Computed example of a mutant assay.
Amino acid sequence: MSRKRFEAAAATAAASLGLTRTKALATLLSQGRSPAYILGRLQTPAALEAVSELLASMTEDGVPSAETAAYLRGYAAAWTRRREDTEARAVWSGPSTPGTPGRSTAQVLTEVVGAAQHRLVAVTYSARSYAPLTAALSEAVARGVTVDIVVETLKGAGGLLSGSEPGDAFSRIPGLRLWHWPTGQRPTPGSRLHAKLAVADDRILFLSSANLTAAGAERNIEAGVLLNGGPMPGRMADHIRELQRRGVLARWPGA
């Protein structure tokens, strides 16, 4: 029997939830919980649509809850095995020397976006329209990737950023979801959203000093590390999802 809708929905839900919450969903399903109870317990805004589609596909394709739970645990086990091996590479932009790592910030940034098949999350302090990145993000959304960008606001920067809102750099990408750190959620005045990173499918993590700008990608001296596999990409993505769930990170005003 063909179960294409279910199989596709399970893959999307697992990718949206990440390892920890995929296991939690499997547990709720194995307990025979109702769809309303499951959606209420997960409270993961970035994944509610994907989980709702999975629950609907179970009914349409006649897949029992226990079987779905086992299916999801299979995904989790595969991720765990894959995470045991980590490949780390240095990334550098700026003046080179004979020992300079061969991969530039601009190259790696677009490659990470291009590698995402299910979910991409990126965090940046400053952002300005940068054509190669805009094209890569647009293509990711078009192929069905859930793209979340967390960016600082002019208000949050407290006068340290000028010009248009950093979030405006992504305004021409339909379907991209924009997030920020509300000032009311910050522990003290003057706290900044200063992280710069990108995670693709909980398996590739790019940590960098570079903002999502042309200057950060091509002109400045910037350094970073690219991790492929291992536990860190998933843990970082899980952390961001939890901040979203708790409301520490909120959707961009008007989004």
Rank of each mutant, 00 (worst) to 15 (best):
E242Q: 13
S164W: 02
L212K: 00
V199P: 09
G156K: 09
P189R: 07
M232H: 08
N220H: 12
A237H: 01
A210W: 03
A157E: 13
D148P: 03
A210H: 04
G229L: 00
R192S: 07
W179S: 13
S208K: 00
R177Y: 08
A215C: 02
K155W: 05
D201H: 04
E218I: 00
Q244R: 09
P189T: 07
L161V: 13
A198P: 04
R241P: 00
G163S: 12
I204E: 11
R235F: 01
R251M: 07
R192W: 06
Q244K: 01
I221W: 04
R192V: 11
A195D: 12
R177F: 05
G184D: 15
S191D: 15
R251K: 06
N228M: 04
A215V: 01
T213M: 01
A223E: 07
T153Y: 11
S208H: 02
K196A: 11
A214S: 10
L249N: 10
I240L: 15
L226V: 05
A200G: 12
P231H: 07
R219H: 13
P233A: 05
S209Y: 06
P187R: 14
F170W: 15
L227Q: 05
P233F: 01
F170I: 08
A237D: 03
H180P: 05
L193I: 05
E222L: 03
W181T: 07
L178G: 09
L178F: 08
H239L: 05
T188P: 00
V150L: 15
P182K: 13
V151W: 10
N220I: 00
P189E: 11
R245E: 11
R203Y: 06
S208L: 10
G163P: 14
L160A: 15
Q244I: 14
W179K: 07
A195F: 08
V248P: 00
F170D: 04
P182A: 14
I149H: 14
T188W: 12
V199F: 04
A217Q: 03
A217K: 03
P233G: 03
G190R: 06
A195M: 09
R172I: 02
V199R: 01
E165K: 11
D148E: 15
I221N: 12
S171K: 14
T183H: 05
I221L: 10
S191Y: 08
R203E: 14
R192D: 15
R246T: 11
A210S: 10
R192G: 05
A195C: 06
G229E: 04
E152L: 02
L193C: 12
G184E: 15
I221D: 13
A198D: 03
D201Y: 02
A217S: 15
E222K: 07
G175R: 07
T183E: 15
E218V: 09
R235P: 04
A250F: 01
